[in-house]
């Protein structure tokens, strides 16, 4: 089973990482990070902190575009073009295919994030004479969030087409970030901590303006990533298992 999963992950990664969309988006975000230091800071704080905030926002948008562009289209296109037949007609379970597809996409998003983070760090280092290593902490948090979004999008794509998947994924991102406020009791600012929220992956404050986050917080994000992704992939497997290809 491991060899089958590894073979599929390798193939998905190799195929997806060579797609132009990934590198066009990263290149565009890289160019924006070059011009970011020339933006006015409007006196909102230390210029380098504002740059880090912009870099994290660019990181998030870049990763989101890459994640949704790949995850919303891959499975529907493989079913439509019958690519999936060559895989599933062999001794491969459908959940193997789903998990491997998701894993491959998560790896590619990780590579794209790494590339962008290196560019952002180099720009920050040259302009502000500061080693912004904490941007890697932000990249890690964004990467985990994209893993969850990829799992949900892959789950949707087990049953729907690219347009529905894209709308569904973006709706999930919106609700995922606002659910904490939506479910908050009138007297509180946010919902109880047990309500899962994508805001857990929002580390702009500690990374851009503070001293980063600790290992405990990293582990809690990892736990949320595993729980939400696992839930989405179990649902996706159930949907794909019932589908006639």
């Amino acid at each position: 089973m491991t060899d089958v999963l590894l073979a599929l992950v390798t193939a998905v990664t190799a195929d997806a990482v060579r797609r132009k969309v990934v590198w066009v988006v990263v290149l565009f975000a890289g160019l924006l990070s070059f011009v970011a230091p020339s933006l006015p800071s409007y006196g909102v704080g230390v210029a380098s902190a504002v740059y880090r905030e912009v870099a994290i926002a660019l990181m998030f948008v870049t990763a989101l575009v890459v994640t949704v562009a790949l995850a919303a289209t891959r499975i529907p296109s493989e079913i439509e073009r019958r690519t999936v037949f060559n895989v599933l007609a062999r001794d491969v379970r459908r959940w193997h295919y789903l998990v491997a597809t998701w894993s491959g996409l998560v790896v590619v998003v990780g590579v794209a994030l790494l590339a962008f983070t290196v560019v952002a760090m180099v720009v920050g280092g040259v302009v502000y004479r500061e080693l912004m290593w904490r941007l890697f902490q932000a990249a890690f948090a964004v990467w985990l969030e994209m893993g969850v979004i990829a799992a949900v999008t892959v789950g949707l794509s087990s049953a729907f087409g690219p347009v529905t998947n894209t709308v569904g994924a973006l709706t999930f991102v919106f609700i995922g970030h606002s659910i904490s406020g939506l479910l908050a009791p009138p007297s509180e600012h946010s919902a109880p901590r047990w309500v899962p929220s994508l805001e857990a992956f929002n580390v702009i404050a500690p990374v851009a303006h503070g001293s980063g986050y600790g290992v405990g917080y990293a582990l809690s994000m990892l736990g949320l990533f595993i729980a939400l992704s696992g839930l989405a992939l179990v649902g996706a497997s159930a949907l794909l298992e019932r589908r006639d290809l």
């Binding site: 089958v4 073979a7 193939a11 190799a14 195929d15 797609r19 690519t83 895989v87």
Partner: peptide, 21 residues
Amino acid sequence: PYFPMQLTASEVLRLYGRLAR
């Protein structure tokens, strides 16, 4: 048949060969 189009011929055969154990 259609295959992942960014892969090379030998990469595709390596994939399906591994799936075929």
